[in-house]
């Protein structure tokens, strides 16, 4: 290696370093204009309309076709209820076309793919703008879409009661029809 090449190597490296440092100095001096971060959680970004976050359900419209549950690639939607106006329970659980006992999404499994939105005939399940869903326990990650709250043990008890009640009422109706038929 000749003397001139030795010095030109040093000079090239030093020059590239100085140019690089000039760029960072430029960013440093104009930091107010260049800052792209926001102070979360005080300031939040705008959520676009197609954002795929936590689900919400318009319960009166649901017809219990189970299409969203079937299309879900990871099987995280659990639906139970009665179709048609055979819905025998009163008070808030009865929709226009069906009666839901249970409509939950398990967020430890959901991959937010959005496939459940499309096959829904009355278009009543949506993926909404909420992206920060947190829980302190894994059992809290199942969300009851009927109420919009976490799916608790009382909800499970209600569902089991509703199943039993429904079977009893259907058996009664059949029995009643049989008697009439007689």
């Amino acid at each position: 290696m000749s003397i001139s090449q030795y010095f030109s190597d040093i000079f090239k490296v030093a020059r590239s370093i100085v140019i690089g440092m000039g760029i960072t100095l430029k960013y440093f001096l104009n930091y107010k204009k260049n800052t792209i971060t926001i102070q979360y959680p005080r300031e939040r970004d705008l959520i676009p309309p197609r954002h795929r976050g936590i689900h919400y359900l318009e319960t009166e419209k649901c017809v219990m076709c189970w299409k969203c549950s079937e299309i879900c690639p990871v099987d995280c939607i659990y639906i139970e209820g009665v179709r048609g106006s055979d819905g025998v329970l009163q008070g808030g659980y009865r929709g226009q076309k069906a009666t839901l006992y249970k409509f939950t999404v398990d967020y430890t499994v959901c991959i937010f793919c959005g496939l459940c939105e499309e096959p829904c005939p009355p278009k009543c399940i949506f993926l909404g703008p909420q992206y920060d869903y947190n829980a302190t326990d894994r059992t809290m990650m199942e969300k009851n879409l009927r109420t919009g709250e976490v799916y608790t043990e009382e909800d499970e008890k209600f569902v089991q009661w509703a199943r039993g009640e429904n079977e009893r009422l259907i058996a009664e109706k059949k029995h009643g029809k049989k008697e009439e038929g007689k």
Binding site: Y27, F28, Y31, N34, T35, I36, T37, Q39
Partner: peptide, 10 residues
Amino acid sequence: KVSAHMQCRL
């Protein structure tokens, strides 16, 4: 602070 201002953050 120096590193943040050089990296477009605060």
